[in-house]
Amino acid sequence: MTSVAPSPRYAPAEYDPAPYDPTTEPFDFPATGLGPSIRSRLTLASDLVLRRRKPKLVYAAVVILGVMAIVVTQLLLSVGLSNGAYQIESLQTQQKTIDRSNADLQEKLDSLSSPQNLAASAQSLGMVSNSNPVYLRLSDGAVLGTPKAATAGSGTFTGGQSSLVPPAATTPATPATSPAAATAAGATAVGATAAGATAAGTTPAATTPGAPAAAATDPTVPWQGDLPSPTTH
C-alpha cells in the first residue's frame, strides 16, 4: 500500500485547450496583442475595434479619481494620526501632572493624619479625652461605670505633657489652628457674610458679628435623628 494512485482531483486535467486559431474565429480575438500583421490583413474590423476602445476613457477617469481619492484619504489619515499623536502627548502630560499632584496630596494627607499630628491638632483645638469610659448597656439600659467629667490637665491624650513622639521628619506639621484663632476666623467669616447679605438688602439689621461668634464656642452639639448605636469591634 505504499503507492497510491493519485486522486483524480489532482491528476493533470484531461483538458487540452485548442491553440488559438485566428483563421477559424476571425472576429473574436482580443483588441490588443496580436500584432499589426493580423490587423492589416483584416481591415474590415478596424472600426469595430475603435468603437470598443471608447468606453475606456471612463475607466481611466474612474481609476485616476480612485487613486486620487486614496491619496487624499491617506493624507487625511496621516494628518489625523499625527494630530492624534500630539493630542495623546498632551493628554499624557496632563495625566502625569495630575498623577503627580495626586500623589503629592496623598503624601500630605498621610502626614497630616498621622497620630502625632492628630493629637497635636486636637490638643491645640482644646479637645480633651475622657479616660473614664462609661457604657450604656442597650439590653437593660444599665449604666456601667461612673460618669466623670474630663479635665483639661488630666484629660488630654498625652496626659497634659507635650508630645514625646515627634511628627515625621520629612514634612513640617501644620496642626489645626488654635481655638482663639478658629473663633476669630469664624467671626470674621460670619461678619463678612453678614456684611455681604446686608449689602444685598435681605438680612435684618440686627445681625451683629459678635453674637454668632459666641454661639460658635458652645461645645454642645444637639442630637439629630436616632440615638447613636455602639460601634461593634
Partner: peptide, 8 residues
C-alpha cells in the same frame, strides 16, 4: 521611601 507616621 517615606514614613508618614515618623517614629510611630
Amino acid at each position: 521611601r517615606v514614613y508618614p507616621n515618623g517614629s510611630v
